[in-house]
Simulated scan of single mutants.
Amino acid sequence: MKLNIQNETSRLRAVILGTAESNGPTPKPEECYDPKSLEHVLAGTYPKEEDMIKEMEAVADVLKKYDVTVYRPQVLENYNQIFARDISFVIEDKIIIANILPDRKREVEATEYVWITVDKKNRIILPDDCHVEGGDVMPWNDYIFIGTYSGDDYADFITARTNKEAVEAIKALFPNKKVKSFELRKSNTDPRENALHLDCCFQPVGKDKAILHKNGFLVEEEYQWLVDFFGEENIFEITKDEMYNMFSNIFSISEDVVISERNFTRLNNWLRQNGFTVEEVPYTEIAKQEGLLRCSTMPLIRD
Rank of each mutant, 00 (worst) to 15 (best):
V114M: 02
V114Y: 01
W115T: 00
I116Y: 02
I116M: 02
D119K: 05
D119A: 13
K120P: 06
K121N: 11
N122W: 03
R123E: 00
I124H: 02
I125S: 06
P127D: 10
D128S: 13
D128W: 05
C130L: 09
E133L: 08
G134Y: 01
V137N: 05
M138P: 06
W140V: 11
N141K: 15
N141I: 09
D142Q: 10
D142W: 02
I144R: 00
F145S: 05
I146M: 11
G147T: 09
T148D: 04
Y149Q: 13
Y149M: 10
S150N: 15
D152V: 13
D152G: 13
D153E: 13
A155F: 14
A155H: 14
F157G: 07
F157A: 08
F157R: 08
A160L: 09
A160Q: 02
A160C: 08
R161T: 12
T162M: 06
N163V: 02
E165N: 15
A166C: 10
V167I: 10
A169V: 14
I170K: 07
A172W: 06
A172P: 04
A172N: 15
F174A: 10
P175Q: 00
N176E: 15
K178P: 04
V179R: 09
V179E: 10
S181Y: 13
F182S: 01
E183T: 08
E183K: 08
L184E: 07
L184P: 01
L184T: 10
L184K: 03
R185N: 13
R185H: 11
K186R: 03
K186S: 07
K186W: 01
S187V: 13
T189G: 01
D190L: 12
N194D: 15
L198N: 03
C200W: 03
C200D: 08
C201L: 04
F202D: 01
Q203E: 08
Q203F: 12
G206N: 03
G206P: 13
G206R: 05
K207E: 15
K207Q: 11
K207V: 10
D208K: 12
K209I: 11
K209F: 07
K209G: 05
I211D: 00
I211E: 03
L212D: 00
H213S: 12
H213C: 14
